[in-house]
Amino acid sequence: MVKKRILLVDDEAGFTRLVKFNLERTGKYEVKEVNQSTHAVQAAQIFDPDLILLDVVMPGMDGGDVVAELRKRPHLAPIPVIMLTALVAKGELSRNAVAESGDLVMIGKPVDIVTLIHCIDEALYFHEDGQGESE
């Protein structure tokens, strides 16, 4: 089975470490950690991920900035992005809400690994299937 490549961008090194352990243990994924948001775009270009997990609040460039930069590059733009946020997103009605804002999926931290994997798989599935949402 081909492992899916996941780029994980978060300024908390401890967090990215643990997520990597959890995801790679399943055998389904290969995870690259990026702790400096300013390196994110370059890492994406080199690593060529199938999906990007992106923290929102980071020093320097925040999640939103990174997404904007990714979208500017045609070969990076289609990559599905899941935002992780410790902020309370507007419209969040229950604890582990998975909200959708435009075509971005947002997950509130802390999130358990089961939910995270579910979201990752779902995003990958839809991306493979139709190469982008039909809306």
């Binding site: 643990l18 410790a86 931290k109 802390p110 690994i113």
Partner: peptide, 21 residues
């Protein structure tokens, strides 16, 4: 405070999830 606390909590949860395996 909430924001700051959520990050360590996120890490703890990830760690617990791992140990759970």
């Amino acid at each position: 405070v909430a924001h700051e606390v959520k990050n360590p909590l996120a890490m703890l949860l990830m760690g617990i999830d791992y140990l759970d395996g």
